[in-house]
Write a protein that binds this DNA or RNA. Structure first.
Lengths: 197, 197, 197, 197
DNA sequence: GATGAATGAGTGTTCATTCAT
DNA sequence: CATGAATGAACACTCATTCAT
């Protein structure tokens, strides 16, 4: 039987890294901590990741795929979008960002030290893609009339900033109760929102 | 005799700490780096700050005073506020947050690791004060009719999140050109904004 | 059943060890390096040698047999030795030592750290045997008159020192062209040499 | 009073390094060992040497100066050299090499791994200078008639090889008693020697 | 027999902190 | 007050060795 190349162990280390890097930052997080958290021995971390930096690098870049899947798509084509679908999309975005606290803190860590981390480029690309997508959504909404006129580019920038800030400015407890508040405020960035009701 | 409270040297060390902590995080920043940046000798840092942690602590809490002055006040009383004054206030907020990149990155660093840093409480208090102030502003705007109806508490949370995100999500270059975009989007969180015009 | 004593694989590992130990010293040489050089897998090394030390030990002691065969013998009996045979013997010694660079570096490594390596004793014994042999040769030469009078013991020590130094003091390139020089100088240690011609 | 920039401590570390590197080789020697041997704390080594490699580098290159002083000079000019002075010079060489066991083992360590250590070049240069000097001595001796004809270049190579081998092939005890033997054999490399008497 | 994942002792190095000058 | 030599705890990383497959 083929060696299963135990991906399960790699995954445990990866998740432990994500959790600890987001709690303590890159430097404060030690390999030993990660090994303990993952329930493997010290040296095993180096079996799956060449060094600390590579592990960190993986923690930054790999989850982007999941983000792409959940965030840069509607269930249908953009052209057939209705206001209800739009509201759902925004809700999905807020939920997803709020849920990804660990990951977003790592991202924030990289953004703050762009010269230090080369992963920055991949993140920039993702941000651009995300804002392009939001612009398209805004344009469709305006064309179809369920959104008031506005500058799509500004909406893109503001929307991404808001989602990041929503997750990073508050610690866990507060946020859970605030999901709805953030969803309503997110809609307002498009010129929509509760006041429409 | 008490230690000197405010020499020019202390200030230089403090500013150097602020800059380096925000660039490199707490752990990566060394006392030696700070001393070099401040143009003082290695041991002198310990003349003005008991240890690294106390210096960091100062970097987090001291600038809050300036924030209070610039952010939690209008030039007149709230009751006499007009729409133009409101727009100016929001503009001032955006400008001020965008300007304080270094400091906000340090703040973010603390927020992400609340168990590790006791400064968190002071920051929480400030956030509460800020959101209270914003709620009052929103209520006045609604009462006076220059803002549509909305939930003041939600506006407060959303507004703070947005300001933080605006500054922390993008690196310098992008931001300079985006000031107006952020001002417009900030107004929309109150239900106002360019599209109203 | 006993472990296999002499597979082709064992020989490959052995030769790789000899080469790498002489290039990099004991500590710098890793088992993984040896395995790669030998074209076998990592763990296979441990099939043929109990541990790193035993492999090193083998690298020091096993080649001594070949040395004995080539170095401690004349083709005829000592008593029938002529000057021509003596010159040939010395030439053979120089050639052989110059050729065995890898091995001699390992030997030198052991000599320099006698407390650390128990192989030292075997080497000492060999050195004694070699010097005894040289003394006999010198005595015969003097008795037969083709060598001037001299102290045979001193000749033995000097000759071995010279052969080791010739190989270990210069790196490869130089040596190739110097074979004759070393042969001539080796003869001079016996009081013979080109100037006699 | 000026800070004495405690050179004494640096010297202690340096000597400890020399001793231990020659006993154990580069890799086996630990900074901790050196610190203990020098009677300083662990971190102090790094106050005087940037890292292990620089310390080793110093151990190889710095003593060369002393070698130059003792080895590459006669007390008078070469032209006025007599046979007695020549014998004394050779005796001085043998004494000096035999005395410098530690250093020569380190040198040997570097020679054996030329790709690994850049110090090699300095050593090569020194070897060339030494052999040039020996050639000049040999030429003078032949010209003045106290040495038989011979190839000065070959003598240079052989002489250096012999001096190195004399020191590196035998461990301490043996050598002390052999000084005279080595001096006599060294003279023979020039075609001179006791048998001449 | 052959393999290589898992382990953890041991290494070089960094850096906050102390303290004598 | 200012300095920087001295210290040693703590870290990332290497590698010989074991052992399940």
């Amino acid at each position: 039987m083929a060696k299963p190349r135990s991906t399960e162990k790699r995954e445990r280390i990866f998740q432990a890294g994500l959790r600890l890097f987001s709690h303590n930052g890159y430097t404060k997080t030690t390999i030993k901590d990660i090994a303990n958290e993952a329930g493997v021995s010290f040296g095993t971390v180096f079996t799956y990741f060449q060094n600390k930096e590579e592990l960190f690098n993986s923690c930054v870049t790999e989850p982007l795929e999941e983000f792409r899947d959940h965030i840069l798509t509607t269930h249908e084509t953009l052209d057939s979008m209705t206001y209800e679908m739009f509201v759902q999309l925004v809700g999905r975005h807020v939920d997803f960002f709020l849920e990804k606290e660990h990951y977003l803190r790592v991202v924030q860590y990289v953004i703050g030290q762009p010269e230090r981390f080369p992963e920055m480029e991949v993140l920039d690309q993702f941000a651009d893609d995300f804002m392009d997508f939001i612009q398209s959504v805004a344009k469709v909404g305006m064309k179809k009339g369920f959104l008031p006129e506005g500058n799509p580019e500004e909406i893109g920038y503001g929307y991404l900033a808001f989602l990041m800030g929503a997750r990073l400015t508050f610690t866990d407890h507060a946020n859970v109760q605030l999901t709805n508040a953030f969803k309503n405020q997110a809609l307002r960035l498009f010129g929509a929102g509760i006041t429409e009701g």
